[in-house]
Write a protein that binds this DNA or RNA. Structure first.
Lengths: 235, 235
DNA sequence: GCTAGGCTGGACGAAATGGTCCAATAAGAA
DNA sequence: TTCTTATTGGACCATTTCGTCCAGCCTAGC
């Protein structure tokens, strides 16, 4: 029963999971050119999307494949047709979320050139989190906590994603420094890491408190810290 | 077979888990005065201790009762004699870890009166985390991420524990402000929240990177921020 | 020492969960 | 159209995992 196959376009589905296994032999020779259909892609996306939502609120380990199957309106065979096992589904989700976040953050940060831009960025994050009263936290952060000591491959992907995210920030700070807005002794990389830590810690505390407030305080601290490197401190 | 019952003293075992169930009737009238033996207390502690270690590295949901049973050298009946079910064990662990952390942090923070004291505090945390190359993160933070959207009771206990922890910090900052070390416009509560967020975010990033560095950067940012409120900025 | 009741070993049960299989259908290429 | 292969439904299986039970052993208090 081909349920509502709405063929989403390019999307983030390009990746078909031909990832090389851990200790691999055929890293060079790729898998055979498996044919692929629009319907298959749509199904895969439905599965990933369901897993994404469920695992955000329940956590990865507390979400069962049956939960995912039901929420995505698919069958067991589809799950296992598109993903080797649960671990591979989780890894695909790590990649998926990473791509979503980086895409979103690129849009917000690629033109960052001023402190006020940073404030707008902060406001967007706070506002989004406020809608949930602080619940759920960061999709990447929560996976990092749950998976870092459980699956090395997921951990390293997450770590790289955090690096990319921080780079989007530090690139902006570099632009600010180059334009003379930031003092020459400002260290964009460290500032970006500090800001990311404040963000993640803010998410965590906000989630525990079910209240955005701690996240605001944390981000404001980090922004104040950056502000202290501005050439002309905006009173 | 009474295995090595080493009767630890006062410890944190006083609590015997008479917690009232969720929608409770007998909140007022406590449970009947159950007798209790040293051996029982020791067993309970062994179980909690094993759960503590296992769940720190594997996470709560990825740790099974059989794992705990085996690691604690107990039997099924003992687990269920001392804890109603897994959820109660987890809640007891939340309380247990909370008490451990607060106890430890009280020792470190109750005499905090200067910025250099804060630096020593930072160094102790960094050093401990460096021993694991950033792995595992904070026992409270990881539980907060995993449990906040899964068990309301655990979430609120964790939130309260974070508050206590922050209060230990803010009390120290208050002392610094009262003694004139900190400027009058410094807000100890907000500074403490920011510091806690930096710490938790630092743990998280360090765990993902398997490297303490991000935690150091994050804590240094928070300390710099506090430093900016010192009356006599130490160069 | 005696006894009530805490405490323990470990077999057992039932449901949840990850995973397999195969027959049947849809889709793309020739 | 026809043939090959991707895709799907869903029954089925094995294991894991939480939880129960009970007979018998200790311990505290009298």
């Amino acid at each position: 029963m081909p349920r509502r196959v709405d063929p989403k376009v390019p999307s983030l589905m390009a990746d078909r999971g031909y990832t090389a296994r851990m200790g691999d032999e055929q890293v060079i020779a790729p898998a055979k050119p498996r044919r692929i259909s629009q319907r298959g892609i749509a199904t895969r996306e439905r599965i990933l999307d369901a897993a994404n939502q469920l695992m955000l609120v329940r956590g990865v380990n507390a979400t069962t494949l049956d939960d995912v199957r039901e929420a995505s309106q698919t069958s067991k065979s589809q799950l296992y047709h598109h993903f080797a096992d649960k671990q591979e589904l989780v890894r695909a989700l790590v990649k998926y979320r990473g791509a979503l976040v980086i895409q979103r953050e690129r849009g917000r940060l690629e033109r960052l050139r001023s402190f006020s831009g940073l404030v707008r960025w902060r406001n967007a994050l706070v506002q989004a989190n406020a809608l949930n009263n602080g619940r759920y936290g960061c999709g990447l952060g929560s996976m990092a906590v749950e998976l870092s000591d459980q699956d090395e491959q997921s951990r390293s992907m997450l770590s790289e994603t955090f690096d990319q995210w921080e780079k989007l920030i530090s690139d902006g700070l570099h632009r600010m420094r180059d334009s003379g807005a930031l003092r020459p002794d400002a260290d964009p990389e460290k500032l970006a890491t500090g800001l990311m830590a404040a963000l993640q810690g803010g998410y965590l505390l906000a989630n525990a408190a079910h209240d955005v407030a701690p996240m605001e305080v944390a981000l404001d601290m980090a922004l104040d810290h950056i502000k202290s490197f501005l050439v002309e401190p905006p009173r």
